[in-house]
Simulated scan of single mutants.
Amino acid sequence: MAEDTSRKRMAHTARSGLLASLAVLIAAAPVFAADRFASQMVELEVSRITAGLDHPWSVEVMPDDAYIVSERPGRLRIIRGGKSGGPIKGLPELFVDGQGGLLDIALSNDFPSSRKLYFTASVPGEGGQGTALFEARLSADEKRLQEVRRLFIMNRLTGTTQHFGSRIAVAEDGSLFFGIGDRGEMDRAQDPKDHAGSILHLDQDGKPAAGNPFADGAKGLPEIWSIGHRNPQGIVIDPADGTLYTVEHGARGGDEINAPKAGGNYGWPVISYGKHYSGAEIGIGQSAKGYEQPIHYWDPSIAPGAIAIYRGPMFPEWEGNFLVAALKYQLLARMERDESNMITKEERLLSGEYGRIRDVKVAPDGSILLLTDEEDGALLRVSRAAAN
C-alpha cells in the first residue's frame, strides 16, 4: 500500500515536471495570431513564423521545412518551429553599409545530399567594394559554413554604397543567374565590359556558362548575359518553361519587369519610363532602336525587392501569376498575364500592413513566404484562409 502511494507520488511529480517543462518551452516560443485579409479571388491568412530579424534579405525552404534566412548586417540563421537559431559561423569578410551586406541565398539543386548553397554579398577590396558570389556547404549540425569559396567578384570596385543587386536564380542545369546594379554610376550599365548594371550567367564553378552571348570576350565580358539594368533586386526562373525574369528598381518611376535575353540591352540609362530624382528627364525617352522594352513598368515606383512566379497547389486561381515584393509601398503585387506574357491585371495585397517587404518565395506546399525589411523584421506565411 505504502509502495503504491509512493509510486503515485513519483508519477505525479514526473507529470508535474513534464508539464512545467512544456510550459517553459511554450512560453519561450513566439506566439502570433494570424490575420485575415480579403483578396479579389480568395481570402488570405497571414501568420508570423518569427520576428526579431535584423533587416532580413532572403529566405529559402530547407528539405525538412525549416527556413534559412540571411540578414543584411551579416548573419545567416535557421528558423525551425518558429524559433530562430544562432548565427551560422563561417561567413567571409563583408562590407556592411548603405545597401550593402549579406544579400541573397539560394540552395543548390542537390542540396539534400550535398548541403551546398550559394550567397551574394558586398565585399571590400581594392578600390572600394562590390558584389561577389560565394558557394559553401552547411555543416551537418547547421552551425557553420564549410568549404566557403568565392566563385565571382565584379571587375571594378568603387566607394559607392548602393545598387549591389543581387538575387540568384539556379537553373535546371545547375548554372547560376544573378544581377548586379549600376552601383550608382549609371553609365556603367551600358558598358558590356563592366559587370555593373548587368545580369551574369555562370556555371557551378564560377566560369562563364555555356550559351552566353559574349563567349569569346571580344564585344563583352564572357560571363555577362544582358546589360542595361539599373538595379535588379529580383530574379526568378519560371519552372513551367525555364524563362528568366527580373524585377528592377527605376529612379523616380520606371521600376520594371524584364525577361532578359542573351545579349539584350534593357536600356538604362538611355531609355527609361522614369525620371531622375531631381525631376530631370532620363536619356532620350522611353524607347529607341536597339533597346528592349520591359514586360511591365510602374510609375510611380513601388521599389520592388523580389519577384516570384506562382506555381503551387494552394492558390490555383493564381497559377502563373507574378508576385512582386514592394519596399516603398509596403505591399505584395499580384500580376496576372496573358498568353503573350503581357500584364493584364495587378492586385495590391497587404498594403501597409507589415512594413517594407523585401523577399517573396513560393513554398513547396503552395503557401507564400515574405520577409519584412525592418530592424525588427519578420518571416511571414501567406496561406489560404479556412472557411469560417
Rank of each mutant, 00 (worst) to 15 (best):
E3M: 08
T5G: 04
R7T: 10
R9S: 04
R9V: 12
R9F: 06
A14V: 12
S21C: 06
L25A: 14
V31S: 14
R36K: 15
A38V: 12
M41K: 15
P56F: 12
W57L: 02
W57I: 06
V69A: 06
S70N: 13
S70W: 07
S70Q: 07
I78V: 14
I79V: 15
R80S: 11
G86E: 15
P92I: 03
E93I: 11
E93C: 01
F95T: 03
V96M: 01
Q99S: 05
I105R: 06
N109W: 05
N109F: 03
S113F: 05
S114T: 14
Y118A: 10
Y118R: 07
E126F: 05
G130Q: 10
R137T: 12
L138N: 07
E147P: 00
L151E: 09
N155P: 03
R156K: 09
L157Q: 01
T160I: 01
T160G: 05
Q162G: 04
H163Q: 07
S166D: 00
E172S: 13
E172D: 15
S175G: 03
L176Y: 09
G181V: 03
G184Y: 05
M186L: 05
M186D: 11
R188P: 00
R188D: 12
P192Y: 01
G197W: 07
S198C: 09
H201S: 03
D203C: 07
Q204Y: 09
Q204L: 13
F214P: 04
A215C: 07
K219R: 13
G220C: 06
L221H: 10
E223G: 08
R230D: 10
N231D: 14
P232Q: 09
P232S: 04
V236C: 01
I237T: 00
L244Y: 08
E248T: 11
A251P: 15
D255N: 07
N258K: 04
Y266T: 04
I271V: 15
Y273T: 04
H276K: 09
H276P: 01
A280L: 05
E281K: 14
I284Y: 08
I284E: 14
G285L: 06
S287E: 15
S287K: 15
G290I: 08
I295L: 15
Y297H: 13
D299A: 06
I302P: 03
G305I: 00
I309H: 08
R311M: 00
M314S: 05
E317Q: 14
A325W: 00
L331Y: 03
M335G: 07
E336G: 02
N341M: 14
K345L: 10
E346H: 07
E347S: 13
G352V: 07
G355N: 00
L369I: 02
E375D: 15
L379F: 04
V382W: 01
S383D: 03
A386N: 02
A387C: 00
N388M: 11
